[in-house]
Amino acid sequence: MSGQTDYSGIAALSICEALLLALKDNGLLPEHEIIGVLSDAASTHENAIGSDADMEMHRAAAELINLIIIGGHSVLRS
């Protein structure tokens, strides 16, 4: 990804993080459910099929999501 696509991806990630934080902070979604949402998103990318370029993107997306889960990203620490 490059240029506008990078910015769109970063913005989307920030928006999703803010939404997950708001859901957790307001007691609407417990931490284990947030981890479930993130795990489901990672699995979607891990099980995707497509061209080599598509698969590279899906693998990178799954890796990023799994790092958020494993690393206790701010969504899981607030």
Rank of each mutant, 00 (worst) to 15 (best):
E63H: 04
L76Y: 14
I69T: 08
G36C: 08
A41E: 09
S43Y: 14
M55K: 07
M55G: 05
V37C: 07
A42H: 06
H58K: 00
T44W: 07
T44C: 08
S43I: 08
V75K: 00
M57A: 12
L64E: 13
I70R: 04
H58C: 05
I69A: 04
A62F: 15
A42D: 08
A62H: 14
V75Y: 01
T44F: 13
M57D: 12
D54E: 11
T44G: 03
G72Q: 10
G50T: 15
H73Y: 13
I34F: 07
I35V: 13
H73S: 12
I68W: 08
D40M: 15
T44P: 04
A62W: 15
I35G: 04
A53M: 00
G71P: 09
D40R: 12
M55S: 11
R59I: 14
I34M: 04
D54R: 05
G71A: 02
S74H: 09
G36K: 11
A60N: 10
S39A: 14
M57W: 12
L38F: 05
I69Q: 01
I68E: 00
I34K: 03
S74M: 13
L64F: 15
H73K: 02
I34V: 06
I34T: 03
M57E: 13
G71T: 05
N66Y: 15
H58Y: 11
A60L: 05
S74N: 07
I34S: 07
M57V: 14
L38C: 01
A61M: 09
M57L: 13
D40C: 13
I65G: 01
N66W: 10
I69Y: 07
L38T: 01
H45I: 09
A42M: 15
D52R: 07
N66D: 13
H73M: 02
A61C: 10
I49W: 00
M55I: 12
D52P: 02
A61L: 09
I70M: 04
A41V: 06
H45S: 11
I68F: 10
L67M: 10
H58L: 01
L64Y: 15
L38K: 01
A53V: 05
L76Q: 13
R59H: 15
I70D: 10
A41Q: 12
V37Y: 01
I65D: 02
L64A: 14
D40E: 14
S74A: 09
N66L: 04
G72Y: 11
D40L: 11
V37H: 02
G71V: 05
E56S: 11
H45Y: 15
L64I: 14
D54M: 03
S39K: 09
I65Q: 05
D40I: 04
A41M: 06
